[in-house]
Amino acid sequence: MDIQIIYLLYVLAFIIGSITGLVLSYKKYTEPFVRKNIDLAALILALIGWILTINYSLIETLIPYYATITIGIFLIAMVIGMRPGYGRFETVIGFAVAGIIWIIRTVLT
């Protein structure tokens, strides 16, 4: 596949993911203020998303890497794109976990 189409895919995944995240989080949280607790669903999405994006080579044999990253970016964007005030901790935690896995993987191999 052409490299530029892949980048377009990423960008589109990010934008569509953001809009989806925005809409879903507005459906879930209707108050005007921000609750403090961590959203479990968002946390799972962020974890999966970051792990897929950073560690796409883990399942490269099963799925082409660009598809993994597209899905990953879509999931990340869903969390980042949530209502302002939400999804921050989830993103940080997801990124940290994925980073640790990446470090472990690169160090181990």
Binding site: E31, P32, F33, V34, R35, P84, G85, R88
Partner: peptide
């Protein structure tokens, strides 16, 4: 800067 958000205290 990092954690700007609307508190529930506004209500």
């Amino acid at each position: 800067f990092t954690a700007a958000k609307t508190d529930s205290e506004i209500m």
